[in-house]
Every structure is written in C-alpha cells, then in structure tokens.
Simulated assay, not measured.
Amino acid sequence: MIKAVLVFNNHGKPRLSKFFVRYNEDMQQQIVRETFHLVSKRDDSVCNFLEGGSLIGGSDFRLIYRHYATLYFVFCVDSSESELGILDLIQVFVETLDKCFENVCELDLIFHVDKVHYILQEMVIGGMVLETNMTEVLAHVEAQTKLEKQETTAVSFVKAGMASAPTRAIAAVNTLKAAAPFKR
C-alpha cells in the first residue's frame, strides 16, 4: 500500500503532499523534512529505493523516488508494493503531468495544485494503484476540464443575465406606465 506521495524541490520545499495514512500536521511536516534529508543526500548514480525513515515506519516501509530537474517525486510504500512497479508509476505520473502542462515545471505544481491532485487521484486512490495507463488518465483529465469550462460558461451566463435584470425591470415598468397611465 502507498502511504504517502511527496513532491519537493531541491531545497526541501513541498510542492505536493498526499498522505493516505492519517498523520497530524506536525507529523506530516516532520515526515517531509526527514524524507527530504534521506533522499537529497543520496548520489544520483545510486539505487532509487531506500528504507523508510524512523517517522514513516522504519524498515517495513520503503521510499521509492525519482529526481527530475529540480523536483523529487517520492512514494512512501509498505513492503507489499513492488519497487519497480512504483518506479513505473512515478514515470507515468510525471509523463502525465508533462502532457497536461506541456513541459511541466515546479510553478505548474504550485499554481495548479488542484489539477495535480486530480491527476494523482485518477492514478492512486486510498493508497491503492487504480490506473497506470496514461491515455486513460489523460482522457479523464480532459473530460474534467471540459466539464469545468461548461460550468464556468454557465455561471458567466447567469451572472450576465442577473446584471441586466434591474435594467430590464425598469424598462418593463416604464412600458406599463406608458401603456396604462395611472389615474387618480
């Protein structure tokens, strides 16, 4: 089972953190710091698997990570998960982000955090891998984007109609006055 997905930059600033196990806020921050220290001090030529830190579960847990440019993508998993399968999942996650944001960068993760969480949720739910086919994930993301655009258009249409409502009401009253003048 996947316990957490963490993405942080070369300076240890978290850009995405999704915990599938309940930890309080302070513990989550400590886990991110400890994970960064464990992963960042490793050379790029060594294996991308290491034993979990003392906070995330010790020897029963593994940290599986990839370092792309300025970002570390780390999956904290228990011993039942396949290390190579998780490495493949990280690759698919990054490629999907790259397709959605056209050359994904750290700023995309900062300014589109909701979309990044949605993409991750299409792939992993409750710590279990749901989908690894990038085409399927992209199809769901595109459908969600279309739905959001339709909703935005509908809201804009309603707002435009509401903005002109007072003008239409005054025009209707003036028309009634002209048609049937009030007699005393």
Score class of each variant (00 low, 15 high):
Ser17Tyr: 12
Asp60Gln: 14
Val137Asn: 00
Leu84Gln: 07
Glu83Phe: 11
Ala69Thr: 08
Val173Cys: 11
Glu102Ile: 15
Asp98Leu: 10
Ser156Cys: 04
Ile56Pro: 00
Cys76Asp: 04
Tyr118Cys: 05
Thr167Gln: 08
Glu122Ser: 11
Met128Val: 15
Asp60Ser: 11
Arg42Gln: 08
Val92Trp: 06
Lys177Gly: 02
Ser156Glu: 05
Phe49Met: 05
Leu16His: 13
Ala178Glu: 09
Ser156Met: 06
Ile110Thr: 15
Asp88Lys: 09
Cys47His: 13
Val5Gln: 01
Ile90Cys: 06
Ala69Leu: 10
Ile31Asp: 00
Pro166Trp: 13
Thr35Arg: 02
Ala169Phe: 09
Gln30Asn: 11
Leu89Met: 10
Arg15Glu: 13
Val113Glu: 14
Leu147Asp: 04
Arg168Cys: 03
Gln30Met: 12
Lys3Asn: 12
Asn9Met: 10
Lys149Tyr: 02
Asp108Asn: 15
Leu16Val: 14
Ser17Ile: 08
Val155Arg: 03
Phe36Asp: 00
Glu81Pro: 00
His67Glu: 02
Ile2Tyr: 09
Lys18Thr: 05
Ala139Trp: 05
Val77Arg: 02
Val21Phe: 09
His37Trp: 09
Asn48Pro: 01
Ser40Thr: 12
Val92Tyr: 07
Phe36Gln: 02
Asp88Phe: 12
Ile119Gly: 01
Gly57Phe: 08
His112Thr: 10
Thr153Trp: 06
Phe8Glu: 02
Arg66Ser: 05
Asp44Ala: 13
Val92Asn: 05
Leu63Ala: 03
Met162Cys: 02
Arg62Cys: 04
Thr153Tyr: 08
Met134Trp: 05
Ser45His: 14
Thr132Glu: 06
Thr152Ile: 10
Arg62Tyr: 15
Lys177Glu: 07
Asp108Met: 11
Arg184Pro: 01
Thr145Cys: 00
Val129Asn: 03
Val155Ser: 01
Tyr68Trp: 09
Leu87Ala: 07
Leu71Ile: 09
Asn9Ala: 08
Thr167Val: 11
Glu25His: 04
Asp108Ile: 12
Glu142Val: 03
Cys47Asn: 13
Thr167Asp: 06
His11Asp: 14
Thr96Lys: 05
Asn103Tyr: 14
Val77Tyr: 04
Ala165Ile: 06
Gly52Val: 07
